[in-house]
Nucleic acid binder design. Structure first.
Ligand SMILES: [Mn+2]
Ligand SMILES: [Mn+2]
Ligand SMILES: [Mn+2]
Ligand SMILES: [Mn+2]
Lengths: 222, 222
DNA sequence: TTTCATTTTTAGGCTTGCCTAAAAAACTGT
DNA sequence: ACAGTTTTTTAGGCAAGCCTAAAAATGAAA
């Protein structure tokens, strides 16, 4: 089992995230942007990771993870999300504080630690932001979730995830009393700017901008 | 609050451990031995740490931690031992498996994490090897413990700590059914080689070599 | 006090991971 | 097709943290 540096692991995870949705190769610039580093540094590292067989690199063509690289990246995501669950469930952190800490904890090397942590937490399927946690074999639960912005008036739904999980967005949701599991109903849609008026079941009526509605995943309940 | 690299933190901890018992300066060679590295690398790093004001360095004279260096080292020891408690108490690791993992976890940077972990674990005073855990102010509980080797026949005592915590020693103790909290009584001392016959209260009679007796801390109960 | 072994430091070199500036390649629009 | 723009790579350099070999300082013994 190859041992990677934290820098190598972070690059793998960046490539994984960029390529996981659309199946195009990850570009040097996209990786540089995600890692807040220079394109030159990225090219440097991509060559090294390609040399270790963790990704396929062709000059000017971007990169795709190899099978092994994908496994390693998936395991990192698993560790990251498990630690986030630990921090929120056991240590009572709020969901906007856990990412940076998990970013460090994910690099701790010990398969037994991950396995025991997973058991201790009761093998959670989703992290505090609603993202699926890969199991020990790399499989993750798929959930048929849609964007809040795609709902119509009268639709009822439950909030199951956030697309973006920046601190400011999460804190804004807290202020609105919106958290995972919150049930809501659409009252009205304003076509002019795409904003929506919704009512929290057993709570207040609030208006959300289009941007917010595009960043909330829900499941329809009616 | 200065941020140190893992390497810098490990050097600080090594100096701390070497100087904590006797109050002489830590020698380059002693540090090199503890860190399994070359004396040249140690000299290199000592200069850098001295430059950051974390220790006092005089050529050919060894080093002593500065006040700030001592605070940082103590906090590292605190984190290391808290994580060990977590691994044993919450994740059910055996006491011989936790050191290497804690060696990584201790470097995670987040004061809030340490504080919450401490609370979650109910502010433990001792780690799984019986070593005291410094509190948030760096104070640690002092315990009047003595070496098993200093007991006389008929003395009763309880095992509260181990001097050495190598894997092989800890596993040997497991095999003997000796763990922290075990009550015992001295049956006989063999002056010839310093070995001792003891009886575990409610258990068997065993004979321990002098080396083992010199590595076990006990408190007399009678 | 001088010699010799041990300890420590210096010198020089290597890898990793980053940087900026410049060159090269790839796209875009006309 | 070619000029201009954008993206990517190359070149050269730097700091951290390690190494080995050689030099210098220290301390113990004769
Ligand atoms: Mn990370
Ligand atoms: Mn998350
Ligand atoms: Mn460490
Ligand atoms: Mn310990």
């Amino acid at each position: 089992m190859e041992v990677l540096t934290q820098a190598e692991e972070n690059y793998l995870k960046a490539v994984f995230k960029i390529t996981e949705n659309d199946d195009k190769a990850a570009s040097t610039n996209a990786i540089a942007a995600m890692m807040s580093t220079s394109a030159a540094s990225v090219t440097d590292m991509l060559k090294r990771l390609a040399g270790k067989g963790l990704l396929h690199y062709e000059k000017h063509r971007g990169v795709v993870l190899s099978e092994r690289g994908g496994e390693l990246a998936t395991n990192l995501v698993r560790k990251h999300r498990l630690w986030e669950v630990f921090l929120v469930k056991m240590l009572d952190f709020s969901w906007d504080k856990v990412h940076d800490i998990a970013e460090q904890l994910e690099h701790v090397q010990s398969d037994e630690l991950v396995e025991r942590l997973d058991g201790f937490l009761d093998r959670p399927q989703f992290d505090p932001h609603g993202d699926p946690i890969p199991d020990a074999n790399g499989k993750m639960a798929m959930r048929k979730q849609i964007l809040l912005s795609s709902l119509d008036p009268k639709d009822q739904a439950v909030l199951v995830g956030v697309q973006e999980s920046t601190n400011t967005f999460l804190q804004y949701l807290d202020k609105l009393k919106l958290s995972l599991g919150t049930k809501l109903q659409v009252v009205e849609r304003f076509e002019y700017d795409g904003s929506m008026k919704i009512v929290l079941i057993g709570g207040e009526e609030i208006t959300l901008s289009h941007k917010v509605c595009e960043n909330l995943f829900v499941q329809k309940t009616k």
